[in-house]
């Protein structure tokens, strides 16, 4: 505790509080709440039953009203703590509600109906995780299929991205040839052309080559990322050319030089690109939305958006599936965040 306090109040020079210190900590704590809060809130909400979700004001933890089986009643009845006229409190099960009066029974003596004003009773609640929010979409809807599609697109696109981009980066960093500058220029130019500008013609090309409603139609246009080529090329430029000379003297073919010397030595940059690519492809939305029009081909992102756009939004399922969609990204964040931040700070700009 003392440690935590020392940690939280550590300041420059150990002098008294300056107003900038207060601003700093208000901003940071505020940031912590605003940045993490929504996702945490969503996660808590995803374990609530539809009834609990409709409650206002909402509770933070997922509560459900306790139910009990009472003799003589088919359905389980909800348990309430009722204030009796004599001032004592008693746990009763509610049979039905008429206006402001609830008809209740004592679960131990179910024969006698007790009438209680609804203002005098409080539901007996327990924490319960509505895990069916998670299991149902997977068992009854197509979410397993969506999940599989997303995984397939992400993994395949990332692998192809790594291979294709590293090959191009190798050629552009280690070979002198006519048209190298032209090739660099073409790649540079593609930085200027985001997807939203070429939506319509790209769609017609994908249709022409028969990749409409095909996961490959989602994968292929995304794999030749200029950013990837740049990151890898910058890194490969730092590998000494003497190593390549040495390999040539060692009777290695150019292809061997690529995959036995260059690729292993580019591993750190490849890792950064792989992480980026996984996050990008997992999160892709607009393009899959256009290319995929059959339900069984939807990726998680498309599936989610379609479900959330339906008339009677089933929030309990949507929330749970949003959490599922978030999981890989959160894992990347927890374990690989350092890689990404240094990757952006190091190569994103310079």
């Amino acid at each position: 505790m003392g440690n935590a306090r020392g940690f939280l109040t550590r300041r420059k020079g150990g002098k008294g509080w300056h107003w900038t210190d207060i601003v700093t900590w208000v901003w940071l704590i505020g940031g912590l709440i605003v940045m993490f809060g929504p996702a945490v809130w969503l996660t808590f909400s995803s374990f609530k039953t539809p009834a609990a979700l409709a409650e206002f004001p909402p509770s933070i933890l997922p509560y459900v009203t306790q139910q009990v089986k009472v003799d003589g009643y088919e359905k389980p009845l909800a348990l309430f703590e009722a204030k009796m006229p004599d001032g004592s409190t008693q746990v009763l099960a509610e049979v039905r509600r008429v206006g402001i009066v609830a008809q209740m029974v004592d679960p131990k003596a179910p024969g006698q109906i007790i009438r209680v004003n609804i203002a005098d009773r409080q539901p007996v609640r327990e924490i319960a995780f509505a895990t069916e929010n998670y299991t149902k979409p997977f068992t009854q809807f197509d979410f397993v299929q969506y999940l599989w599609n997303s995984v397939f697109v992400t993994v395949t696109a990332t692998l192809i991205t790594l291979i294709v981009n590293s090959m191009a980066a190798f050629a552009l960093s280690k070979y002198e040839f006519k048209g190298r500058n032209a090739a660099m220029l073409v790649i540079l130019a593609t930085l200027m052309v985001p997807l939203s500008v070429i939506l319509v013609p790209l769609y017609s090309i994908i249709s022409t080559v028969g990749l409409f409603n095909n996961l490959w139609g989602v994968i292929l246009p995304t794999v030749a990322t200029p950013t990837g080529v740049f990151i890898l090329r910058q890194y490969m430029l730092t590998i000494p050319d003497e190593l390549i000379d040495a390999a040539r003297m060692d009777k290695a073919s150019e292809w061997q030089i690529y995959w036995r010397i260059i690729l292993p030595l580019t591993a750190p940059a490849l890792a950064v690109l792989a992480i980026f690519s996984v996050v990008w492809r997992w999160n892709d939305f607009l393009w899959p939305l256009i290319v995929l029009s059959r339900r069984e081909l939807y990726t998680l992102q498309v599936g989610l958006s379609i479900y959330s756009g339906e008339l009677n939004v089933q929030w309990h399922y949507i929330l749970a599936m949003t959490v599922v969609t978030m999981i890989p990204v959160v894992l990347v964040f927890i374990f690989l965040q350092r890689f990404i931040t240094t990757g952006i700070a190091g190569s994103g700009l310079k």
């Binding site: 996702a39 969503l42 996050v279 997992w282 999160n283 939305f285 992102q301 989610l304 958006s305 959330s308 949507i318 929330l319 949003t322 969609t325 978030m326 990204v329 959160v330 990347v332 964040f333 990404i340």
Partner: peptide, 9 residues
């Protein structure tokens, strides 16, 4: 890192 869909939802 969150997907736009997740952010929106």
């Amino acid at each position: 890192l969150l997907s736009p869909v997740v952010v929106g939802l």
